[in-house]
């Protein structure tokens, strides 16, 4: 009996040591699973017109050139809208892993805008996993056109509007990311009494990857308290993100001319149902300002 147990013991030892020889890496035991953040939910920091749940990385500057053309249904004489263009030039900066800021200027109303976006919760898997990301974005816009009536008393504050947004998003899989963004836009000066000073809206956006470098994106806002008398509509954009090395091209169709939150939520008058849509594109070009060690 003793001999038998001894034999088994040795045999077992022999087995285990020979098993180790076959796979050296197993010798070290399995690595403890680590918390792993989920990144790259969107190719860029915008879905199409809205802020996405992604941030640009710290030390990176993103030059964004946005174009919206005229209505496609104007026909060949207007070259399907390409004869008319409005644009926004913007610069975004990644400050920390969880914070970015940006400024821009649009030709529409000669409007300046600036924003800050901060990530409070970062989607993660593994130990301490979190099912979604939560971000906050806030910004303001400044209309710099000349006063319509210089003879009356005009206030600088009338030029300003503000917006605040919570972005809740989840990268469901490699190919699918979705987000919801409750938003408030406050205008210091509204055109008519029917216009709400505080416009509430809920945004929905998503991306579906078609290949490694191309995705289909959509971006929509449902406004909760619109002015029903001025003919403004909910903005909806749909298009493709195409990545080519250092650039991301966002080619899309939209009914929103505006390229900041105030304009596309309160001044979108084109109607998808009537074919009043525009072609638009965003070009994003990243520059690494601060080299990483």
């Amino acid at each position: 009996m003793k001999k038998l147990s001894q034999f088994f013991f040795l045999f077992f030892l022999f087995l285990s040591s020979s098993a180790q020889d076959n796979d050296l890496l197993k010798l070290l035991g399995n690595d403890k699973p680590k918390k792993e953040y989920v990144d790259y939910a969107f190719k860029s920091s915008r879905v199409i017109m809205s802020h996405s749940m992604e941030l640009i990385r710290p030390g990176v500057m993103d030059l964004r050139i946005l174009h919206r053309f005229g209505n496609v249904n104007q026909g060949g004489y207007q070259f399907f809208g390409l004869d008319q263009a409005t644009m926004r030039l913007g610069l975004d900066f990644g400050l920390t892993k969880n914070m970015m800021i940006g400024v821009g200027r649009s030709t529409n109303k000669k409007e300046f805008d600036g924003f800050i976006k901060y990530r409070l919760i970062h989607q993660a898997k593994g130990p301490g996993s979190l099912p979604f990301s939560l971000l906050m974005a806030g910004g303001s816009t400044l209309n710099s056109t000349k006063w319509a009536d210089p003879s009356r008393k005009n206030f600088f504050s009338s030029r300003l509007a503000y917006y605040g947004q919570v972005i809740i998003g989840r990268k469901f899989s490699e190919g699918v990311s979705l987000q919801l963004s409750p938003t408030i836009v406050h205008r210091n000066l509204v055109p008519t009494l029917q216009d709400p000073a505080d416009m509430l809206a809920i945004g929905a956006g998503g991306r579906f990857k078609l290949s490694k470098r191309v995705s289909l994106n959509f971006d929509y806002y449902y406004r909760l308290n619109p002015n029903k008398t001025d003919g403004t509509l909910n903005p909806f954009s749909i298009g493709f993100d195409i990545e080519t090395g250092g650039h991301v091209f966002q080619l899309h169709f939209t009914n929103a001319i505006g390229m900041n939150e105030r304009v596309f939520l309160t001044e979108t008058t084109n109607d998808w149902a009537k074919g009043d849509i525009q072609f638009g594109f965003n070009i994003s070009r990243s520059f690494q300002l601060k080299k990483r060690k």
Partner: peptide, 21 residues
């Protein structure tokens, strides 16, 4: 793998070696 440029790191993981897969 750590790269000098954040975008290179993103492309490396997302488009080239597909590190999630």
């Amino acid at each position: 793998f750590e790269f000098e440029k954040a975008l290179m790191q993103e492309h490396f993981n997302e488009n080239y070696v597909e590190s999630n897969k």
